[in-house]
Every structure is written in C-alpha cells, then in structure tokens.
Nucleic acid binder design. Sequence first.
DNA 1: TTCGACTTGACAACATTTGTCAAGATTAAA
DNA 2: TTTAATCTTGACAAATGTTGTCAAGTCGAA
Lengths: 100, 100
Amino acid sequence: MSSIFGNRLKKLRGLKNIPQRKVASFLDVDAATYCKFENGDRKARREQVTLLAVFFSINEKELLQLWSADKVYEILVEEEDAKEILSVVAEKISNYCNKR
Amino acid sequence: MSSIFGNRLKKLRGLKNIPQRKVASFLDVDAATYCKFENGDRKARREQVTLLAVFFSINEKELLQLWSADKVYEILVEEEDAKEILSVVAEKISNYCNKR
DNA sequence: TTCGACTTGACAACATTTGTCAAGATTAAA
DNA sequence: TTTAATCTTGACAAATGTTGTCAAGTCGAA
C-alpha cells in the first residue's frame, strides 16, 4: 500500500528525525492518521498537504505533485490501458483553452 | 462543463438518432441523469459505462478510456503543473511491479 | 399554442472518506 | 527479558461527497 507521497513524508521525517506524533500534532490529527499517510493507507486532504510542506519547510508544489500523482495512479490501476488513458488526458490538457 | 466521455455519448446517440429517454431507460435511470452524463455534469458509474458500450454496440474499452481520462483530468485541472504530474505518474506506472 | 426533447437546481438516499480509539506489533535501551 | 516509546492496524461514528429523482423550467418544430 505504499505511495509516492507517503514515502516522501517518511524520508522528510527521517531527516528531521522526529516521531510521527509531532507531525500529527502539527496537523492536528491523531498520530494514527498521520501514520496512515506515510504508509499510503489514507490520503491526506489538500489543506494537509500545505501544512506538511510548511512543517517540513519544502516547496508546496513538489509535495502537491506527488499527492496528485498518487490520486491519478489510483484511478489508472483500476484500468488495464493506463498508458493509453494517459495519452488521452495529455491531449485534453493541450486543448485546455479550446471549447467545443 | 463538457467532458470527453459525454461528448462521445452525444455523438453515438446522434448516430442512432434516438432520444436521451431511451438510453436512460436502458440504464434504468431518470432521463435527467443521462442528460447530465452527456453534458459532463455528472459522472457515470463504472457499471453504467459497460451498459452504455452494450447499448451503443461499441468496444467497452474505448468508452472506459474516455471515462477514466475524464476522472484523471478532473484531478489535474485542480493543479497548475498538470504535465509534471503526468510524468510522475507515467514513471510510477513503469515501475508497476517494483516494491520498495 | 402545444408537444416532445432537453436542461437545471434542490433534495433525500446512499456511499465514501476522515479521524479517533483501542489493541496489537515493533524497536531500542537497560 | 522487561520496559517504554513508537509505529501499525481494524473497527467505528461523524463528516463529506455522490447518485438519482422530481419539479420546474427552456428550446424548437409543427
């Protein structure tokens, strides 16, 4: 159940060398909840990503990318043709501004 | 609020030249619900995608791709760096089988 | 105008997600 | 080993989100 986002949190916390409890209290959640974030058992909420970036003093954008990537991945693993789907999406993103 | 999936439904129904009401009753939902599918105001459920492929006699995989693409797109529009996120995902998909 | 088809907003019913608690692992130190 | 702190896990209520319906529209063609 590991996630890119969760693995990043683990690594960041490892660098600071502090217990989950501390991060959890900064987020104002139970330590169990934060534990699940690290292990990919629960997704953090959007606002919590912001808080985590602040807590670990890193660029929010970077964390947000990993968080979003996990969400996208979650959709794709359900389907067999992940790559084809990605290219459909990529195309739609290019046509961003075009209305039909 | 248009969606790739919904636009495809519209086109398919146009070819058959039948009212929304008919498709809706095949799906066993209100016509209003199906109307929303076409206009991207509501997402169909996974099982409904299958039914729609049957109804329009097309390859389920194709419809499913569009349906998934919409879901992915929905996540990406919320964030600014859609393309970077996609490449993070693409990488994760390649490493499919690797556990860490 | 009248008819059928389409669209839209609000709402209840249903489903999913979130956070907590409590109990159980795991780890490190003495 | 025993202890103490940390981490992990499952089950549950509360909060949040989604789905389908209804009712009240709009729009176009006859």
